[in-house]
Nucleic acid binder design. Structure first.
Length: 253
DNA sequence: ACCATTTGACCATG
DNA sequence: CATGGTCAAATGGT
């Protein structure tokens, strides 16, 4: 009947919180989060669901937001044709990152659009995960035949690789996989068919009160740079080593 | 063998 | 009371 998306944000004043310029993945509501996690809530009153800061975002690539998530649930919503997927930061147990996100497919379009609702910012130190493993291998001589390799973070080698299922599913329709590099310098000119992330307010929705969205560089920027920068050999997908995820590390249920 | 995912049930919130 | 969200155990995959 009605979407109960909660946009309860604190105040926009924690600019220092996101001073790190290294964070350009997806843009949180402007770095609010004075609303501390459960820590703020004494045992007497757990953080009500409504107190949780969250921001919605529309995207075609809900799985590639620069962070690793572990799916912890799926539920079929009454008013939704598609089930809702629940994800949690893979570092939850190691870094107590309360960041979580829930996916909701909006349409069964060919390029399905998803509504991602993020909750809490990543306190795990924003792990560097621009995208799936992208390895550009420019030939030593001719750089016209640049070879791009798209690898899913689930190859072999690392056993700690969340997002095995999800990735497989979306991989088939990931707009990113359809990237084509022409000889021209500027390739992205026509047909912006896909926008990595749409703003929740852009939709037919009556301005959901989208947060500041600040400079939002979004990972697309990364791609842009990548597209114009692959002059030398670059190596994306820095999968150092993920922390162990002891399955569940509940604080206090 | 390990880990992430999967599915169902339980709990919490509204 | 209903819906949504999270937990929890099992299975599969690597």
């Amino acid at each position: 009947m009605k979407r109960e998306e909660s946009f309860e944000f604190g105040e926009l004043s924690a600019q220092d919180a996101m001073g790190s310029a290294s964070e350009s993945s997806y843009s949180p509501p402007g770095a609010i989060f004075g609303v501390s996690p459960p820590e703020s809530s004494p045992r007497g009153g757990r953080n009500r669901r409504r107190d949780r800061p969250s921001w919605v975002k529309l995207t075609y690539t809900p799985y590639f937001d620069g962070h690793l998530w572990r799916k912890y649930g799926q539920k079929k919503i009454k008013d939704a044709v598609f089930p809702r997927l629940y994800f949690r930061c893979s570092y939850r147990g190691d870094r107590q990152c309360l960041a979580s996100k829930l996916l909701q497919q909006k349409n069964g379009d060919d390029p399905p659009l998803y509504e991602v609702t993020y909750t809490y910012e990543h306190t795990c130190g924003a792990p560097p995960v621009p995208f799936p493993d992208i390895v550009a291998e420019p030939p030593p001589t001719a750089r016209e035949g640049l070879v791009l390799r798209f690898d899913s973070p689930g190859g072999h080698g690392d056993s700690q690789t969340p997002q095995q299922g999800p990735y497989h599913q979306s991989t088939s329709r990931s707009p990113f996989m359809m990237l084509s590099f022409g000889s021209s310098s500027q390739a992205h000119d026509q047909q912006p068919a896909f926008r990595s992330d749409l703003e929740a307010g852009s939709s037919p929705l009556p301005d959901e009160g989208q947060p500041p969205a600040n400079g939002d560089g979004d990972m697309f920027s990364t791609w842009d740079s990548f597209t114009y920068d692959f002059d030398s050999h670059m190596h994306f997908g820095d999968h150092s080593h993920l922390p162990y995820n002891s399955n569940y590390d509940y604080d206090d249920y």
